[in-house]
């Protein structure tokens, strides 16, 4: 299990969090259809570091962006985001 450094609550067990989606898959409301399609149905999916949106569902319930290595699970950053990030 990972220890996720919630920007509001400090380090917390991963079981308190829900993975939502990657940052590259957030579709802006005004995206042209080609961009929307790409973001909906494809992923960078790197065998390395990527930005992911997680939610501290069983804690402060806030959304955050976690920067994590997909092989080592090393977390290199976790920053709070506002509701605008999911528009």
């Amino acid at each position: 299990m990972m220890l996720i450094p919630c920007p509001h609550c400090g380090p917390r067990a991963q079981s308190e969090f829900i993975y939502e989606r990657t940052v590259d898959s957030v579709v802006p409301l005004d995206a042209p259809s080609q961009e929307a399609m790409t973001k909906l149905f494809t992923r960078n999916n790197p065998r390395g570091v990527d930005d992911e949106i997680w939610r501290h569902t069983y804690g402060c319930r806030a959304w955050m962006i976690l920067t994590r290595h997909r092989v080592t699970n090393e977390i290199s950053g976790c920053r709070a985001i506002g509701p605008e990030a999911l528009l």
Partner: peptide, 17 residues
Amino acid sequence: HSGHVAGLAGLKLPVES
């Protein structure tokens, strides 16, 4: 590892590992 190998050819796939 489809996403990784296809990425070597510049493709972005509809998969998440």
